[in-house]
Amino acid sequence: MKKGLLIFLGILSLSLKVIAQENLYNETNTRKFGEYLLESGQYNFAVKEFERLNFLNPSDSNAKLNLMKSYRLSGNWEDGIRRSNEIFEDLNLIPRPHSIEYSKLLLTGRDWPRAQHYWETNKTLPSPDKALLNTTAEIFNSDFQKALEYVSLVNDSTNYLAEGYRSIIDRGLNGKRKSPFLAGFMSTAIPGLGKAYTGNWKDGLVSLIFTGGMAFQAYRKFNQFGANNYRPWIYTAIGTGFYLGNIYGSVKSAKVKNRKRINILQHEASDLFNAYY
C-alpha cells in the first residue's frame, strides 16, 4: 500500500518536473541564461545569475568557475578574488580550471608576490602549469632572468606557450638596451645629445635650442649688465632648469625606450598566454 502510494507520488512528481522545465529561475535555466549572458558580454548581469546559481546549488563547480570568470570580465577582479575566498573552503584544493581562473584574477590584479605564493601552496595545479604561470608573472614583472629560471622547469618541447616564452625571454635578455646612465652622461656634456642617442633627436634638438638660447641670453646680459643685475640671473635660472630637466629627460627617455621594447614582448606574451589558457 505504502509502496503503491510512493510510486504514484513518484510518477506525479516526475510529470510535474516536465512542467517545471518552464521555470525560468530554476537551476538549468539560470545556467543557460547565465551562460548566454557571459557569452554575449553582459558580464555584470552574468555575475547576478551565477551568484544565484551558486546559491541554488553550492556544489555546482562549473557555476563557481563561471562566477569567477564573470567577475573578472566585468572588471571587478577585486570582488572576484574576495568572492573566490568566500565560496571555496580551501583555494589550494580547487580543481585545475578553477585554479587557473583564480590565477587569472590574481594576474589581472598584478599582485605578483600573492600570486606566486598561491602557486607555491596550490596542490592541484600540475607543475608545468605552475612553472608557466610563474614565468608569466616574471615576464610582466619585467624580470627576464627569473622568468628564464621558471621556464626551464618545463621540459615538454611540444608546449607552444613554453616555446614562445623562451623566444620572448631570449629577446628580452639579449635585445639592444639603451643605457640610461650613458644617455644622462651624454646630455650632461651636450644638452640634447642623450635624447638623440635614445632615438628622440627632435626632442634633443629642441632641448639644445632651449638651453643654448637661455645660455646665450644669460651670457649677453652678464656682458651688458654685470652680475649685480637681476636680468642675467633670470636667464641663468631658466637655462639651468632646462639643462637639468634635459638630463633627467634623457635618462627617462632611455628608460622609456627600454620599457617600450619590453612592452612589445609583453604584448606578445599576453597573446600567447590568452591563446593557451
Partner: peptide, 16 residues
C-alpha cells in the same frame, strides 16, 4: 514524500 512534493510544487513558480 515531503521532499518530492516540495520540489515539484516549488517548480511551478516563475515560468515564462
Amino acid at each position: 514524500i515531503f521532499l518530492m512534493l516540495i520540489t515539484s510544487l516549488s517548480a511551478f513558480s516563475q515560468g515564462i
